[in-house]
Computed example of a mutant assay.
Amino acid sequence: MLPRRSGLSVAIFLVPPLLLYGVAVLLPIVQSLFLSLFSWDGITDMTFVGLDNYAKMFARDDVFWTAFGNALGYLAICLVLQLGGALAVAALLTALPRARELVKTLYLLPAIISTVAIAFLFQRIYSLDPVGPLNQLLAWVGLDGAQTAWLSNVDTVLAAVSVPEGWRFTGLYMLIVYAALIAVPRELEEAARLDGASWWQTFWRIRFPYIRPVWITTTVMATTFALRGFDIPYLLTNGGPGQSSELLTTYMYKTAFVHTDYGYASAISVFIVVECLVAVGLIYLLLRRRDDS
């Protein structure tokens, strides 16, 4: 469809990043798929086991299903914080008369802070002995009975490791949504207000449908990042106590580098890739149905 010279120019610019993507992303996925068919400790010869690693994963490994359930809870909390927070702050920013740049910068800062620093920060926030800011705040408002060791309590640990991840990237998604909101044509909003639409009706009926493509992309990004979340939960709890905060990613890491079962760890990694693809497919299916209706 393009002239030959234009097509050549496009190829020159596209081929290098596609090659880099293939080497950095696709090749490791293919290698993991191949390795998942073997039993290998990283030293001795590989033993072909076929689909036995997958059979073990689905039928004989209770920890895997615990980690899968935790990953879904982790995903839900991250999406509520990241997408809900991003949309709310972006909408408020459009109505802010001044200091927008300062607010955007403050919200974006967590996304560029070191993961290790964030983990140490929230360890202090959740601390019970010495009393951290969260437990101190509960004491100030008269909720001393609600004080707990948030990272050691099996009832609170999953939410405790999810909040830092949600807080960390809210500013990034806020910036994306804000850029989409300010691109909404003003004449559409003015016409809605002249027709008597409230602020909420203008937002829900005019603004949000207009930014739907950006919202879909942001949802896909947040979902896949959360399903692949690893660093903060691993640094905070290493999957504990027990398997209360064990995610598929942390379980895969420990299976490979602690138990040196690289074949089974590769099978888990393949499942994570498939899980992300299924999640993306469901997002597009649900939002496309919404558009069609």
Rank of each mutant, 00 (worst) to 15 (best):
Pro3Trp: 06
Arg5Leu: 09
Arg5Glu: 12
Phe13Tyr: 07
Phe13Glu: 02
Leu18Asp: 00
Leu20Trp: 04
Gly22Glu: 03
Ala24Met: 03
Ile29Phe: 00
Val30Trp: 02
Gln31Cys: 02
Leu33Gln: 04
Ser36Met: 04
Leu37Asn: 06
Leu37Ala: 12
Asp41His: 04
Thr47Cys: 04
Thr47Asp: 07
Val49Arg: 01
Leu51Thr: 00
Leu51Asp: 00
Asp52Gly: 08
Asn53Glu: 04
Tyr54Val: 00
Tyr54Gln: 02
Ala55Ser: 09
Met57Gly: 01
Met57Glu: 02
Phe58Asp: 06
Phe58Cys: 05
Arg60Pro: 07
Asp61Trp: 02
Thr66Val: 12
Ala67Cys: 10
Gly69Cys: 13
Asn70Tyr: 12
Tyr74His: 12
Leu75Cys: 11
Cys78Trp: 03
Cys78Ile: 06
Val80Leu: 15
Leu81Asn: 07
Ala86Ser: 15
Leu87Thr: 11
Ala88Glu: 12
Ala90Met: 11
Ala91Met: 11
Ala91Leu: 13
Leu96Gly: 10
Arg98Gly: 09
Leu108Glu: 08
Ile112Leu: 11
Ile112Arg: 14
Ser114Met: 07
Leu121Glu: 11
Leu121His: 10
Arg124Tyr: 11
Pro130Arg: 11
Asn135Gln: 07
Gln136Glu: 14
Ala139Phe: 14
Trp140Gln: 13
Trp140Ile: 15
Gly142Pro: 03
Ser152Ile: 00
Asn153Cys: 07
Asp155Asn: 12
Ala159Pro: 15
Pro164Leu: 03
Gly166Ile: 05
Thr170Asn: 14
Tyr173Ile: 05
Val177Asn: 11
Arg186Glu: 08
Glu190Gly: 05
Ala191Leu: 03
Ala192Asp: 04
Leu194Gly: 06
Asp195His: 06
Asp195Gly: 11
Gly196Leu: 03
Ala197Asp: 04
Trp199Thr: 12
Trp199Pro: 11
Gln201Cys: 09
Thr202Cys: 14
Trp204Ile: 10
Tyr210Leu: 00
Ile216Asp: 14
Thr217Asp: 10
Thr217Trp: 12
Ala222Lys: 04
Thr224Val: 01
Ala226Ser: 13
Tyr234Met: 05
Thr237Ser: 10
Gly240His: 05
Ser244Thr: 05
Ser244His: 10
Thr249Gln: 15
Tyr253Phe: 14
Lys254Met: 13
Lys254Ser: 13
Ala256Cys: 11
Thr260Trp: 15
Thr260Gln: 15
Tyr264Ala: 05
Ser266His: 07
Phe271Gln: 00
Val273His: 03
Val273Met: 02
Cys276Ile: 01
Leu282Met: 08
Leu282Gln: 05
Tyr284Glu: 12
Arg290Pro: 07
Asp291Thr: 12
Ser293Val: 05
